[in-house]
Write a protein that binds this DNA or RNA. Structure first.
Lengths: 223, 223
DNA sequence: CGCGATGGTAAGTAAGCACTTACTTTGGGC
DNA sequence: GCCCAAAGTAAGTGCTTACTTACCATCGCG
């Protein structure tokens, strides 16, 4: 196998293991075994374990995975289609986390263990979401569409619903014992709550066509 | 130092270290040193590292820390004072997480590392919150006070705002770069958004006395 | 053919790990 | 004052860890 090929393969295997067990909990031997090579090969491609971990950063940033949430809802932003903005962001994030659950674990471990990866993600991603979404909300407040409230609080509330839901699905309750709904439904209902929560004036009380028999332990399953 | 005293001290030190570095990342030597005793003493009181970790469970459950969120807002529930119910829960949780930030880290590590502690917390705490809060919401929907929507989704949305906010304060953004508000304000605004979001009929558009100059990067500091 | 760059390994090494053993100190009751 | 249990330790044990060294194998190329 060619050098660069092997290097990438080791990195991918490492990402998977680091996301499962964290940096401290993953041994270089495990990584080598999972990649089907000897430990020495790992250290030929990466000077040490730390460098292997840091290489994830560049890989995740450079490879196609880098999502730009602002561009994802760019036209909705231009059209001031609030529902499309928030639901689009929510759905995009939920789908992303479902497709790549490893990444969320990796980030959580990274934050807990205090690695650069978490800090970088925060700076390059989270911060920007707060900025552009906060600005959009401010704009709509100026339009009189939203009530007056610190836009950062609104962003936190909305991101909170989404991230917490993903964290539940990926980490705490993967069997969906508490709540099992499709990402589309989740995005829709979170958006409903938020937009109703911050919209000013008369609101188009939605017909609740998906309003459900609502007892506390209902467990909507998708499909 | 008496046996039980020392045992408790070792346990407390262990909780602190486990919360900082996780189970795998904490060595028994470190625990012993932090407790000011030799490693052998740790193993006199706890058969092995795993048992020491599991002892945290009993300790956290038995000691006064065990909060019953349902009882905390019991009279608000009885009076059907929606605002008091949600704001009380939010404020209680936020204060608890601020006073004992170790616990949230411990839980996150526990969930990632797949320990019993996380599972137990989920079963004994999270599940019950979803149940009683879900039931309350269903009741209020039946009263016609809230719109029709799966109550579990509402619970998830609200818990999401709170937990995500605490997680930001404790883990991702302890310096409050994105949002620095008092727990009281956070609880109030999250409750505003949620109650506006799910209340049916005419709503008492709150006067927004605390509505703030709202630009995207505002950074309200408490005090 | 030869030969050097490249992909790969077996077998280390020193430090660190959870856990043990064999021993010393201490303090309260008779 | 003596005794013994309980509190405490120094110095291991065997295993694992991150990382190294010294060596093979295969291939393209003159």
């Amino acid at each position: 196998m060619a050098g660069d090929e092997r290097k990438l393969q080791i990195l991918r295997v490492a990402v998977s293991l680091f996301s499962q067990r964290g940096f401290r909990g993953t041994t270089t031997k495990e990584i080598a075994q999972a990649a089907g090579v000897s430990e020495a090969m790992v250290f030929r491609h990466f000077a040490n374990k730390e460098e292997l971990y840091n290489a994830i950063l560049d890989h995740k940033a450079c490879s196609g995975d880098a999502v730009d949430p602002e561009r994802m809802v760019a036209d909705a932003l231009k059209k001031k289609d609030d529902r499309a903005v928030f639901e689009g962001l929510a759905f995009g994030a939920l789908e992303h986390h479902e497709r790549d659950p490893e990444f969320q674990r990796l980030l959580m471990y990274s934050a807990l263990e205090g690695h650069e990866l978490a800090e970088m993600f925060f700076e390059k991603f989270v911060r920007r979401v707060y900025e552009f979404l906060g600005n959009y909300i401010s704009e709509r407040q100026h339009d009189g569409a939203f009530i007056k409230i610190d836009s950062a609080i609104v962003v936190r509330a909305f991101i909170g619903m989404i991230i917490h839901h993903s964290l539940n699905n990926n980490l705490w309750d993967p069997r969906r014992r508490l709540l099992g709904i499709s990402n589309k439904n989740a995005a829709k209902h979170f958006t409903d709550i938020l937009l109703n929560g911050i919209s000013s004036g008369r609101r188009p009380k939605q017909a609740s066509k998906s309003g459900r028999r609502s007892n506390g332990s209902s467990n909507t399953r998708k499909q």
